Simulated scan of single mutants.
Amino acid sequence: MPKEKGTDIPINGVDQDDVKQEEENCASAENADELSLSEEELTALCREHVCPECDVMQKAEQERLRALADTENVKKRLLREAEEMKRYAGDSILGDLLPVLDNLDLALAHADHADEACKNFVMGVDMTRKIFLDTLKNHGLESVEAVPGTEFNPEFHEAVGMASEDDLDDNAVAQIVQAGYVLKGRLLRPAKVMVNKKS
């Protein structure tokens, strides 16, 4: 069968139309393979070949940086909480020891009426109290300033009653009922005081 003018001429006995047809068949087969990829496979291919300026890449980078920042914030918070736990670990034990200190103070307050025979005993109680208080101070315990005449401070004082002293100002501490204590800057127990109100 003669070829028409302008058509491809067989080269080495291979018809060029057949070659083109074969290439088209291969291309359509590749397209069919691409279309049969799952959504996950397509997303993975996209991530491999995406350019840095692409919105998908920028969004993924932002999410990665946000996750890193969140992780860093959690780490810092856990370190801060661990430090705080170490710093105030003894507050419950020291809080439980405060009544012992209160009882020693109470014993010394009533020692004024003791006779000569008890003076050595009172001196022993006073020395015990000082050693005990020094030991607690070594662990960060300090007494709240509550002296008669100082102004009442609700952050460190707890009012348990009213007094009427003419020589003191209104809202001044008139009497200390129970000493208060601070542990490393944090209030462990407020000082219980009587507050002055002039009539």
Rank of each mutant, 00 (worst) to 15 (best):
E4T: 00
P10H: 05
P10N: 04
I11D: 07
V14M: 13
D15Y: 11
D15E: 15
Q16S: 04
D17H: 11
D17A: 12
D18C: 01
Q21M: 12
E24N: 08
C26Q: 04
C26V: 13
A27K: 15
S28T: 14
E30W: 14
D33R: 14
L35I: 04
L37H: 10
S38D: 10
E39S: 11
E40C: 06
E41N: 14
E41P: 06
T43R: 14
C46P: 03
C46K: 14
R47I: 02
R47S: 03
H49W: 15
C54M: 13
D55K: 15
V56M: 08
M57C: 09
K59Q: 10
K59W: 15
K59M: 08
E61Y: 08
E61D: 14
Q62L: 15
Q62Y: 10
E63C: 02
E63P: 01
R66E: 15
L68R: 07
A69R: 09
A69Y: 13
N73S: 05
K75D: 00
K76D: 05
K76P: 03
K76W: 05
R80V: 00
E81L: 03
E83W: 09
E83M: 03
K86C: 10
K86G: 11
R87I: 01
A89W: 02
G90R: 10
D91Q: 11
I93P: 07
I93H: 08
L98N: 02
P99C: 07
V100F: 15
D102I: 09
N103V: 14
N103K: 15
N103G: 13
D105M: 04
L106C: 12
L108K: 01
A109H: 13
A109S: 15
A111C: 13
A111N: 07
D112Q: 12
D115W: 06
E116R: 10
A117K: 15
F121C: 01
V122F: 08
G124T: 03
V125T: 01
V125N: 04
V125Y: 08
D126F: 03
M127F: 06
K130D: 04
L133M: 06
L133V: 03
D134F: 09
D134L: 13
L136M: 15
K137F: 01
N138D: 11
H139S: 06
L141M: 07
E145H: 03
T150R: 09
E151I: 11
F156M: 11
F156V: 10
H157C: 07
G161S: 10
M162P: 01
M162K: 13
S164M: 10
S164V: 09
E165T: 10
E165D: 15
D167S: 12
L168R: 00
L168P: 00
D170W: 11
D170F: 02
A174V: 02
V177E: 07
V177M: 13
V177G: 00
V177T: 08
A179R: 14
Y181C: 00
V182H: 00
V182T: 06
L183T: 02
L183G: 05
R186V: 11
L187C: 11
A191L: 04
V193E: 01
V193C: 06
V193S: 01
N196L: 07
K197D: 06
K198H: 12
